[in-house]
Nucleic acid binder design. Structure first.
Length: 308
DNA sequence: GCCCAGGTGTCTG
DNA sequence: CAGACACATGGG
């Protein structure tokens, strides 16, 4: 069976390689695989489970625009799929944003300047699915990232669907429809705390009833309104709201200021013995106005330098 | 054994 | 409104 291949042009100032580095930060990640510079990702569109292989096309000449090659390893090619896929990739790699203002601003900041040089072309790698963004954040609250990945792996492999290809399983995140009908004990069995289990199921139920949708959140004009709507959900505090606004709702000024990873990254970048205080971080963030999410993301990226 | 992890909800003064 | 504390578990 022939594999459907399409090539799409990506914006200037986009580094697929840098985004792959971020995606490769955990060996416990179950929602994608990276091999030989290619990204393999299962993806659900209109009820059909697909498998994508994404790779960078080497430029023919410096003048040709940069291309990404998308191969549909599993799934039926169709025009709707091509369209949806473009939208999906735009959100996954935040392609619609012009990074020029961020880079200009970063030149004036001692902390950001070396990072934007080192990771030039890195864009916020998003989580387009609202249910995944919210519940992944909830799972990650107050535990080490590696434990969070372990819990996510159990959750995905227990309640998600998989696409098989060449003897390997490619997993899809569980849907809110599935999770909405779970009991707390179903998740306790995966070492969720009682509270986390309640929060995750609660989010699923709010989405199943369409009380909570990505469209409604995006329709809000003020970022503050979006933030308030999110924190009204049980289990979603300021950190989670900002995380979701940054990773799913594409709000460049979202700022998860309480994030421990952010604190550690700043400590390392500054060469300090202690982590900066919230007051000090607010001071530093004066220079990131409007781009707090990007500053945070570049700082997170700096934590994974030792990983290939 | 103690402290910290990609925090949040609840209670108290 | 700030501060303390429970939640639960893994790793250094």
């Amino acid at each position: 069976m022939p594999v459907e291949t399409m090539e799409i042009a990506v914006p200037d100032c986009f580094s697929f390689y840098e985004c792959l580095s971020f995606l490769g930060r955990s060996h416990l990640e179950v929602l994608h695989r990276i091999e030989n510079g290619c990204l393999y990702k299962a993806w659900m569109v209109e009820g059909e489970a697909l498998l994508l292989k994404i790779s960078a096309v080497p430029p023919q000449s410096p003048r040709t625009s940069q291309l990404l090659r998308i191969e549909l390893l599993v799934g039926t090619p169709a025009d709707e799929i091509r369209q949806e896929m473009t939208i999906y990739l735009e959100q996954l790699f935040d392609w619609k944003r012009d990074l020029t203002p961020f880079y200009e601003q970063a030149k004036q900041d001692e902390i950001m300047r070396p990072l934007v040089e080192r990771y030039y072309g890195l864009r916020i790698v998003g989580i387009p699915d609202l249910f995944e963004a919210l519940t992944w954040a909830i799972i990650g609250q107050q535990i080490t990232l590696s434990f969070a990945y372990t819990m996510k792996k159990r959750f995905v492999e227990q309640f998600g669907e998989k696409v098989m290809y060449a003897g390997e399983a490619y997993w899809l995140y569980p849907t809110f429809q599935t999770v909405a009908s779970l009991q707390v004990d179903d998740l306790r069995a995966l070492q969720f705390t009682t509270k986390k289990a309640e929060y995750v199921i609660g989010v699923a139920q709010k989405m199943a009833s369409a009380e909570l949708t990505k469209e409604k959140l995006l329709a809000m004009q003020e970022p503050g309104q979006m933030h308030a709507a999110l924190t009204s959900i049980r289990g979603v505090g300021a950190w989670t709201a900002d995380y979701v606004m940054m990773k799913c709702l594409q709000q460049a000024s979202a700022f998860p200021i309480a994030d421990v990873g952010l604190h550690n990254a700043l400590k390392i970048q500054l060469g300090w013995q202690e982590k900066p205080s919230l007051t000090q971080i607010r001071q530093m963030a004066q220079k990131w106005k409007g781009w707090e999410a990007y500053a945070t993301f570049y700082l997170w990226r700096s934590l994974y330098d030792d990983i290939t």
